[in-house]
Design a protein around this nucleic acid. Structure first.
Length: 675
DNA sequence: CTTAGGG
DNA sequence: CCCTAAG
């Protein structure tokens, strides 16, 4: 008799049917999970870097004085545009079922109310914003997908948008402490203020579970008006893009409720309520496609936690970008102090700037005239060291995006160090004081820059040597990350293709142009000299959650890419509910089926995870409530756990007994035969 | 690839 | 969550 591998009756004696998923699909899903994790790591790191460098800031005197902004009580700047232009508007709305923050951007692990990351928007001048072409490497990742006005290149206004996500405590808390910072939105709520005349839409439609959130805000601008910062809720897992039609402006919308972000487009109470529950000040809206449980018919199912979660859709290009920022900063001859150091830069290839080097400029403020002067720097972005990617022409845009993501991930995750450059010179002596180095509060710090450098310098050429013949398939483009030494920074003004034509290295900048699905592609030639340096266009690549079908170039063992441990994602009650239900139905030995049944859409929950969770659930159910930790699981559920566990354990025992019986019955026969 | 268990 | 032996 053949042992039946699958039990066909559940806890309740009902027949059970489980769909079998194609192996390839499973494999792919698994791979995607890995990829996802890798991506996350990179961005976590990125965020960390940014967080560390993001010091308290103050508005530069020049800047602030020049502003004609009036703030409301919360510190929001409400301004009337002086020029023609549309008020800035950002929209973030939320809809769909379960969402959470993308991993790495909002921590939920710590029980303390996580502050949401904020979007920082600063604008200046006529506020024409536009993504430089190189930033469009990932069209979706572009905060401002497209900017209406073309004068961009002609004006010297600065417009930057930055969304800082993770490590809010660093990004936000400290800054909020600065009550004088009128340019900052103290309220983490939903208001966004900025000097942009463009309307920006965060979040897009189309995807069913897309989140959107409105950040309303008026903006004004003035030539010398520098930055207006606003902390705005940022929607992760959401596409942020600029509206195609600049004229399609709507009046600024304030979705704030009591100064807090409110989700518009909330489809289910859950998402709304969850936001309001203990997250009043958390304007973060996120969605998590992964959080959907198939087979979870419990209407009360809800996800309260805004845990960083990412998803990896294997089909469409759903982006779960961790944070997408598209920053455009332009140097104004007037505002020598206006440019700030930029941190967290996802510039994959900047043909007009110095790769690997962050834009120069830092706000410098004197603070507390006590004994010591302080230098306050605001690093808005970091440019990722130059990357080179080789990809066959036949590759899809999607694979290109993945390639870029991979490359960025490889670099960021590979280990970076920060370099300091002052007056164009690298400051090598780490032991010097800032003062000794010439960085003092009464200095102009716009000559101060930071670089991100690979920890272990490697020969760039090795990576570029790949021949297209090595490229397995169109879906597996070669990654050619390259780490230029910072020393070469000032020489890198050429496009990638100029540098390595013979290697057939495709310049991202070139490809980018074709990456415009919806917006008129502003094929701007990155030539405007004025745009040169300090215009870090910060584009944090969206987190393409789909699997990167490419693998890092093997011959280039990057730093001991310590395979980061997956982030911890505590099971929510809803998940537990789903798990329990599935196990009741399927039993304890069919985790893959459980996964398929109840967590098919939760890419980050593997069957092993479920099995482990069940294990802990059983344990939890057995210990006293006082010993339990984490989000309390309803006793009712725990009871069911024990019941189901007992049932299936018994079931298993019975099976084993049966098996033994069968064997015993067969053995005699065998013996007889042998005899 | 799945399970089952220990770590 | 990770790692891995086993099947």
């Amino acid at each position: 008799m053949v042992l039946e591998r699958r039990r066909d009756y559940d806890f309740y004696g009902h027949p059970v049917q489980i769909k079998r998923r194609a192996r390839s699909a499973r494999r792919r899903a698994k791979f995607q999970r890995r990829v996802e994790d890798n991506q996350m790591c990179a961005f976590d790191l990125l965020a960390t870097v940014a967080g560390k460098l993001f010091l308290q800031e103050k508005e530069h005197p020049l800047t602030s004085s020049d502003k004609s902004s009036e703030k409301d009580q919360q510190g929001f700047v409400k301004e009337e545009r002086r020029d023609a232009g549309e008020p800035f508007k950002a929209e973030l709305s939320n809809e769909g079922c379960h969402r959470r923050c993308d991993r790495g951007f909002v921590k939920d692990d710590s029980k303390k109310a996580d502050k949401p990351f904020k979007a920082e928007l600063s604008g200046e001048g006529s506020s024409d914003i536009k993504c430089l072409s190189n930033s469009q490497v990932q069209s979706e990742s572009c905060f401002f997908k497209e900017l209406p006005h073309s004068e961009i290149y002609g004006n010297s206004h600065v417009a930057s948008v930055m969304a800082n996500s993770s490590y809010p405590e660093r990004f936000g808390a400290e800054r909020l402490a600065d009550g004088k910072n009128h340019n900052k939105v103290e309220n983490l709520g939903s208001k966004v203020e900025l000097g942009l005349s463009s309307k920006v839409e965060l979040g897009s439609s189309g995807s069913p579970d897309r989140s959107e959130c409105n950040l309303g805000g008026d903006v004004s601008k003035g030539k010398d008006e520098l930055h207006k910062f606003a902390k705005a809720p940022v929607v992760t897992s959401t596409e942020m893009r600029c509206l195609d039609d600049p004229l399609d402006e709507k009046p600024p919308v304030q979705i704030s409720s009591g100064g807090n972000a409110k989700l518009s487009g909330c489809v289910d109470n859950m998402s709304c309520s969850s936001l309001s529950e203990g997250y009043d000040n958390v304007p973060v809206v996120s969605r998590d496609d992964d959080e959907n449980f198939l087979g979870c018919d419990n209407p009360s199912f809800e996800t309260k936690s805004f845990r960083p979660i990412s998803r990896i859709g294997d089909q469409s290009i759903r982006k779960t970008l961790a944070a997408k920022y598209c920053k455009v900063a332009q140097q104004s001859k007037h505002d020598t102090l206006s440019n700030s150091v930029e941190v967290v830069n996802g510039n994959l290839k900047d043909t007009y700037t110095n790769p690997g080097m962050s834009s120069l400029g830092a706000h410098q403020y004197s603070s507390l005239g006590s004994k010591e002067s302080h230098v306050n720097l605001r690093i808005k972005s970091f440019r990722v060291p130059e990357l080179f990617i080789e990809i066959p022409e036949t590759a899809t845009i999607e694979s290109l995006k993945r390639s870029v993501m991979e490359a960025v991930t490889a670099v960021l995750g590979g280990g970076l160090r920060v370099g300091v450059i002052l007056q164009g010179k690298k400051v090598r002596d780490d032991n010097k004081t800032l003062l000794q180095a010439g960085i003092s509060h009464d200095n102009q710090l716009d000559a101060l820059g930071f670089t991100l450098e690979p920890i272990s310098p490697q020969s760039p050429t090795s990576l570029c040597a790949a021949d297209s013949r090595h490229i397995p398939t169109a879906d597996k483009p070669q990654l050619l990350p390259r780490y230029p030494s910072s020393a070469a920074i000032h020489q890198r003004n050429q496009s990638c293709s100029d540098v390595l034509p013979e290697h057939r290295v495709t310049s991202l900048g070139n490809l980018v142009d074709s990456d415009h699905d919806s917006a008129p592609s502003p094929v701007k030639t990155p030539v405007d000299k004025r745009l040169a340096d300090s215009r870090a266009l910060v584009t944090v690549p969206e987190m393409g959650m789909q699997a990167l079908s490419l693998l890092p170039v093997p011959q280039k063992p990057k730093r001991p890419e310590t395979v980061q441990r997956r982030i911890r994602r505590p099971f929510s009650v809803a998940e537990v509910e789903a798990l329990v239900q599935a196990v009741e139905k399927l039993g304890t030995g069919r985790w893959r089926d459980v996964k398929l049944r109840a967590f098919d859409n939760a890419k980050h929950r593997t069957y092993v995870d479920l099995k482990d969770k069940w294990k802990t659930l059983v344990h939890t159910a057995r210990i006293s409530p006082q010993q339990r930790r984490g989000e309390p699981v309803p006793q009712e559920l725990l009871d069911r756990v024990l019941t189901a566990h007992a049932f299936w354990s018994q079931h298993q025992t019975k099976q084993q007994l049966n098996k033994q019986h069968q064997q015993q019955q067969q053995q005699p026969q065998t013996c007889l035969l042998l005899q």
